[in-house]
Design a protein around this nucleic acid. Sequence first.
DNA 1: CTGAAAGCGCTTACAG
DNA 2: CTGAAAGCGCTTACAG
Lengths: 343, 343
Amino acid sequence: MRATSAQVAKLAGVSRTTVSFVLNDVEKSGISQATREKVLAAAAQLGYEPNAAAQSLASGSFASIGLVLPEIHHLYIDSFLARVVASVLEEAHLNNMKLLIESTADEQTRGYTKLAKGGRVDGLIVVNPRENDYDELAQINQQIMPLVVFGSQRRSAETASEFSTTGSNNFINAKLAVRHLIGLGHARIAHIGFASSAFVSVNSRERGWLSALEEAGLSGEGLKESAELSAESGYEACQRLLRGKKSFSAIFAGNDTVAFGIIKALTDQGLRIPDDVAIVSYDDTPLAAFAPVPLTTIKTFPEEHGRKAVRILLDHLSGNLEPHHHRMDSHLIIRDSCGASRG
Amino acid sequence: MRATSAQVAKLAGVSRTTVSFVLNDVEKSGISQATREKVLAAAAQLGYEPNAAAQSLASGSFASIGLVLPEIHHLYIDSFLARVVASVLEEAHLNNMKLLIESTADEQTRGYTKLAKGGRVDGLIVVNPRENDYDELAQINQQIMPLVVFGSQRRSAETASEFSTTGSNNFINAKLAVRHLIGLGHARIAHIGFASSAFVSVNSRERGWLSALEEAGLSGEGLKESAELSAESGYEACQRLLRGKKSFSAIFAGNDTVAFGIIKALTDQGLRIPDDVAIVSYDDTPLAAFAPVPLTTIKTFPEEHGRKAVRILLDHLSGNLEPHHHRMDSHLIIRDSCGASRG
DNA sequence: CTGAAAGCGCTTACAG
DNA sequence: CTGAAAGCGCTTACAG
């Protein structure tokens, strides 16, 4: 069987206390260098690794964080989430934390609370929750464990301070994208959301689109469709738009993946991009530059936000409970799909 | 603070034993329906969730599996890994197992053993390991905990039985892809691997390419390049190929992501696909059909393999230690990039 | 059908 | 500088 700390103690000729102190680098317990080396040697000789369950139970900490993904289905399709997972994982490991991936499959009760209590984690990072989830999340943050929301913020400033958030400002960025199209002379600008607008990130982008239009005295009436994450669904949403009564000369795509479908739908229809329809999208995923028409898109920084979410969470875990809101300036990457590059 | 089983027991007027039996649905302990309901009610009233660390320590099981990714960097770039993560997660949750994501960043000592011992998991799924890792993996499987390797198998049949594996047969599939090109009349077929050939999956595809060539009396001499996962790296690898002395009329791309870069490199050079250069690639990622030239590609089933890996692992965990090797027939999805569809 | 008690392998005041 | 001992919150034979 596996070695225990008692065996290490015996082999080293010390107590289990000393073994624990040495292996955990406890500062104030001035263990002599000689003792320290004996313990280390004994541990190495036995291939000792502490039992994580016993450690957690005794210390009250799991040394783990939970990453909660909205619909695991998203991971299949969109590279955005994968980048979040990867960056959170890296940063967690850098800080000697394990990472558990959770998802909230259940439709009615999202089950965040159960996750928090039974999740063998010390804190939670919740990616792109729904508007409806916010109360439960705030309660968890207050009563159970610290929590950072990735990818969306609450609308009202008043309640925004309940828990920490990181992520791009969807509203402002969407506005930036649509203003760019307006600046290029477009007046009929459609929008295809990348998922249900129950997701805060989705409806924030939609509101940004609308807000930019209104600012310019334009209307989005009849020019909105929703996709369901995949390029296929973007293709279909664009077809619905084409079949609609309203004409349009530009599309603000909810994200790059959906934009791939939009490009194909337009092309199949014989329309040229950007000549007949200009496109601006969102995310700057790794393939955006390799699309059939290289995508003009909002570059966000999911990796940065992911790492920052971990750091904020660790800060909370170490006692600083002041909520923190991390934003980074996104910007538009101009490629071919918007038509701007041709002067 | 959080409720404990003692509090639930007290509120329900029973012992902690009974609470444990009811909450864990222990079969043979014929708890009366009345008692059962009392316990459930008390647990619900207190919002009781068992402490996972205590459960693990007492039961000796973590109810968790570890998913070990080769280089976490891959996740940033290639959608293939994301599909594996998603499917493994789904299947794990279906079986009430938690999922920890691990990675093996360290170059020299991969650290699988440490992961296994300190990983608070009951078993491991290891994705695309390197050839060098196999001995350590076999040892873990034998001495520490069951383990399933995803995405590659050992070359020799003799040692293949040491641990279970799932994944597509890279060698055979690569051969299939290259034979298809040969069948279309191509005689100078280049290959661009998607990563270092230290990865078993990479060098298996390369061997498949070579084997198909040799079978047809062709040579691959001077026609091999390696990318590093990204579309950009595929672009550059293709440029190197174009600068080389050997001419070629077709490319077998190591995966779809790399193929996106290859398409752009060829197009930028004024070459037409498939007229001047035909392409067949590997994976059938969600965007393969939306590439500038829709990709003819090997369709594998990462989600199926991911789910199967979990099921095999659970089977091992429940005592059946017979190694299992799961393969599925892959096939070629014909789209435009190979030229076959134009008859 | 149910309870008292040992035990899982650590950590951590506390005492020396 | 180091050790004896309590305790973390469960599970699980065992006894009744």
